[in-house]
Structures are given as structure tokens and as C-alpha cells.
Nucleic acid binder design. Structure first.
Lengths: 226, 226
DNA sequence: ATCCACCGTCAAGAGGTTGTCAAGAAACTG
DNA sequence: CAGTTTCTTGACAACCTCTTGACGGTGGAT
């Protein structure tokens, strides 16, 4: 299981330290933003599995960040942090699209329990929709568009693209893809993978001959960047 | 809001007391069964809104209870309790039709949060009537019309159409339909699903050969769009 | 600089998947 | 129990995807 990535959005340094230390200790990968605008940016850049979002923030408050993320169809689960025990904030937060909320002060144990609960509840093991460049790919409806135009991907192409995206940044070997996507007893040749990659590039790259998203790493495999 | 009724299936007296006290305190109505057979009986008699089901039970274990309930098409949401942190139990439980699971020991706060989450998630999924194109389908009276004219759907066709509509937008595999609609121990072939889909299309599509509502996704399954 | 393994491209055959139609089995209904 | 409806299965044809091969170009190691 690859480690879960958490984006912490919080401006108080002491609180950031507390949160980061605990999540790192629990084996999570942690990214931090100290204001709302950076949070928005990192949410799309880093694609965390969960966002821990304080309501009181410089530049852009937590509720607005939440709303903006949902408007742009980023469905990463959000756990809200609020210093006030105001019912109003809870209601607003949930209306804006948060998955759960936590009132300060909270115990670390409860924070971790809620985090896990949200991750489990939202089934954050598989990516449902993903955007890169002018592409939108929905892996549950098996629909994809490029610059707004629907494009047609085959089942294998969806599987390969999903696998590459879920491991974005890492180089994936052909045999790993055969093992993971085709299955361990597959008899297919590694050239089969190349063939599918070529077809994918024809469909999703702006200039298939100079791929921007699916890159070749000579003698190793392919890697997705986006 | 009428109080929600919860069936607690658990044989350890101390655990029963803990669970009952907490749920009563939260305003739930509580019914208790201490063995699997009683649980089955009470699930049908009392029609609770949610079943809290321990896996380790006298007479009939929790997984079997779960399976039996689903076989008899009782779709009350089930939250499983397991003392073991075995991934296998989780997988089996979810396959048997549980909605969520919780590993002992768990915090009361987490239990309550999960309970609410399951109730919320499942509470809004039963669709009563649905309209698309010139069709109106009423799933509680089992009546359907196309362009005002009554049309005749079989029970299986209603179930399939409902399942597809409740998951509209996502592609549903044939085996998922067999599991969810026929039941986990179904011996039916996936071609049976195709056959029903074909019949449905004859009845609800304007041009059955070019379906607008029930679409095929090659090698994956079917999806409803409307 | 050269050579060889590696990769991109294209196309065609193989193999699996689905639509259609119909008949037999099973489950209701009166 | 007979009649009717519904469900399931099978055969066949059409279709789509996947896989593989050949060929030429590229990149990197020596």
C-alpha cells in the first residue's frame, strides 16, 4: 500500500508542527499550506488523499477554499478544523462540501480516528476522475474528454491510464504493468504494452510524437506526469 | 423526525450494555439479539433502520447472518463489528453485503460517526419514481409509462432498471448486478444479464438497436444515462 | 563514432464480447 | 393442476478490442 498523502492547511506554526509530527509518525506523507491560496494551488498540484482544512486562514478562508475546490470538481475528501464550536460553521462547512469536521481543541487520537474514518468512508483507494491539461477522465463512468470533446478509450487504455496516474511521478516497468493490469499469469509480450501506450498517446497527447503526459524512460518503462 | 431503530447483534453482555446505553443516549430506539438466529428473525420482524452486527456469534455467525439477509433481499444497512483486524473478514463482510465495518476496539465517537454516515449514505439511495425522456417509472407501485402509454416491465426488469438508475453514470459490471440483484450465491450466467438488458431496451428505448439510456461499455458492463 | 538493443508506428489476424432470436425451464396465478 | 408469465440458457453472427509481427528510427553504452 502506497502511503496516503495529506494536505494540511493551517497558519498557526505550533498547530502545524503538532499535526505534521503526528501524521508523519503514523506513516502519512504530509504537505503543508499556510494560506488559502496556496492550499488551492497545492490541492491540485499534489493531489492529496485528504485535506485537513482550518477555517481561519489568511488570504482566503477555509470555507471559501472548500467551495472553490468543489466548484472545480476536485472531490478529495476534506476534514474541517474550526476553533469555534459554532453549529453554523459545521452546517456551512458540510454544505460547502466538507466530509467531516473537528472542533478545536481536539485530541490527537480523535483526529487520527476521524481521518481514517473519512478515508475509509470515501473509499479513497481509487481515483474516480482526473484532470490534466485539457483532459478529463472519469474512471467510473468510463468517459473521457479532451478540450471538451469526448474521446474514446478502450478498457485496457483506461486501466493503463489509471495505473499510471495512480503512480504518477514514478516510472512503471512494462512487466509491472503486465503483472498488475493483465494479471500474474499473463502470457502477453512487453511489446503489447508499448502498443497500448502508443494508442493512448494518439488519443490524449497534443503532439503524440513528443508526449507531455506519458513519458518514456529508456530501458525502464513509462511514467505519467500531470 | 421519527427515531431511528437499531438492531444490535452481540453476545457479550458488557458490549451490549455499552452499545445500548450509547445509542439510547443519542436518541435511537434499540433492539437486541444475542445470537444469529434471533438476529435473522428480528431483522424481518422489527425492520430496523440499521443493523449492528458482530461477526463472532453463537448458533450462526455474523457473516452468515449478513449473507442470509441479503439473499432474502432485505437491504437494511449493516455495520459489521469484528474483534480481529483481519483484512479477510472485511473483504468477506463487504462481499456478503455489509455497508461498513468497524474493528474492535473502537471509540464510541467513531461508532456513532460511522452509524450516522451509513444511515446518511444509504438513506438517500432508494428511488421511488424516476423520469427520463418520455418514460416515467414508479418503483413502489411497479408501474411504468412511455409517452403516456403504460408499458409492462417484469420484476427483474424493475430491479435492474432501478439498480442502474441508482448508479446512473457509473458503469456496472454484469457480475456486480448478479451479486446485488440475484444474490451472492446466484448460479446464473452473465449472459442472463445481457438477455434482460436486451428485453429492457426493447421496452424503454426509442431505437433499441441504438440505445440512448442503457449503454454498453465493451468488456466492462452497462451504464444508465438519463 | 558505432553498434545494438530499445522504442514508435502501422496494419492485420486472432480471440473474445455482445446483440439477436428462440426454445426450454422455472415460477406464479387462478 | 393447468395455463401463463417470467427467467434462463443456447446458438450464431457481427462486432470490437487486443495482440502480435515487421520495419525503421532512436538513444545510449563502449
Amino acid at each position: 500500500m502506497t502511503p496516503k498523502k495529506i494536505l494540511i492547511v493551517e497558519d498557526e506554526p505550533a498547530m502545524v508542527r503538532l499535526l505534521r509530527d503526528n501524521f508523519v509518525f503514523e506513516g502519512y506523507e504530509v504537505v503543508v499550506a499556510t494560506d488559502g491560496e496556496t492550499a488551492l494551488h497545492l490541492a491540485f498540484e499534489e493531489r492529496p488523499h485528504l485535506i485537513l482544512l482550518d477555517i481561519m486562514l489568511p488570504k482566503l478562508d477555509g470555507l471559501s477554499v472548500c467551495r472553490r475546490l468543489r466548484e472545480r470538481h476536485l472531490d478529495t475528501p476534506i476534514l474541517m478544523l474550526t476553533a469555534r464550536n459554532l453549529e453554523q460553521d459545521k452546517v456551512t462547512g458540510l454544505r460547502m462540501g466538507a466530509d467531516d469536521y473537528l472542533t478545536k481543541p481536539f485530541s490527537v487520537a480523535e483526529l487520527l480516528a476521524r481521518t481514517e474514518a473519512v478515508l475509509r468512508r470515501t473509499g479513497q483507494t481509487r481515483i474516480e476522475t482526473y484532470r490534466f491539461g485539457d483532459m478529463v477522465v472519469n474512471f467510473s463512468s468510463f468517459e473521457a474528454t479532451k478540450a471538451g470533446q469526448p474521446i474514446d478509450l478502450s478498457p485496457r487504455e483506461y486501466e493503463i491510464l489509471r495505473y499510471l496516474i495512480e503512480h504518477r511521478g514514478q516510472v512503471i516497468s512494462r512487466t509491472e504493468m503486465l503483472d498488475r493490469i493483465w494479471g500474474y499469469d499473463s502470457q502477453a509480450l512487453t511489446r503489447t504494452v508499448d502498443s497500448h501506450i502508443a494508442n493512448l498517446r494518439q488519443k490524449i497527447e497534443d503532439v503524440p510524437a513528443q508526449p507531455a503526459y506519458i513519458q518514456t524512460v529508456h530501458r525502464i518503462g513509462y511514467k505519467f506526469t500531470g
